[in-house]
Computed example of a mutant assay.
Amino acid sequence: MSESFSGGCQCGAVRFRVEGPVHHASICNCRMCQKAFGNLMAPFASFKSPVEWTRGKPTLFRSSQAVQRGFCNKCGTPLTYQVGDGNPALAIGAFDRVNEIVPTIEFARENRHPVMDNLDTLTPEDLGSTDEERNMLAILKSFQHPDRDTDNWQPQG
């Protein structure tokens, strides 16, 4: 029996499940992926088995003649990268058990942001290390979907 992976967007309007094992896990540094994620790189996992959309479906944006990208149209979470009619690759950060999928391939390294070579030199600061952060965390009520499938969750906002 193969492993099952689930995940979804931040608000919970779009959820998915896919059977493992992971076929490829990668990060991409190309400018298109950077813009699509609003980040320095985009991490993706692909599977040989099809994606099952268990709640909602992503809205698609054609970012080039060959690629469609899927995202939640309620909260904006980037979810998929799809070439042609094949299975979409899924954003690693959207998985419930995100630490179980580790990229082994890096695309467009020539476009890698300079800080990526120096992450270990950044000054670490734990969340909640200042009075201001502790005060904010004490009253914070997250509207983010929990990292698990649940039948009674209602998207917020």
Rank of each mutant, 00 (worst) to 15 (best):
D126W: 04
S6Q: 13
F143V: 13
M136T: 13
A66G: 04
R17A: 14
G7Q: 05
R97D: 12
L79K: 14
A36L: 06
D149P: 07
H113Y: 06
A138L: 03
L79I: 13
N99E: 09
C9Y: 08
S63C: 11
H145E: 04
M136F: 15
A91I: 12
D151T: 12
P21Y: 02
N135V: 02
T80I: 05
A66M: 14
T123L: 07
T130D: 00
V115Q: 04
G70K: 10
N118P: 00
N135A: 15
C30W: 03
S129D: 09
T77G: 09
I101E: 01
V51A: 12
V83K: 12
C28P: 05
E132N: 03
A13I: 12
F95R: 04
N73A: 15
G8P: 11
M32N: 08
L79F: 10
P146F: 09
F61M: 12
P146N: 12
C28W: 02
G12M: 04
N135P: 01
P78V: 05
T59G: 11
S26L: 11
V102H: 01
G76F: 07
D96A: 09
L140A: 11
P124G: 01
C72N: 10
W53M: 08
C30F: 01
L122K: 05
I27F: 03
P88V: 14
E106F: 00
C30M: 02
N118Q: 10
V98H: 04
E52W: 06
R148W: 00
R17I: 00
G38C: 12
T130R: 01
K74I: 14
M136Q: 14
D120M: 05
I27C: 01
R112H: 00
H113V: 13
Y81M: 05
P88E: 10
S2A: 14
M1D: 12
V18C: 05
T150A: 11
F5V: 03
D151S: 15
D149G: 06
G56K: 11
R15A: 11
T130N: 01
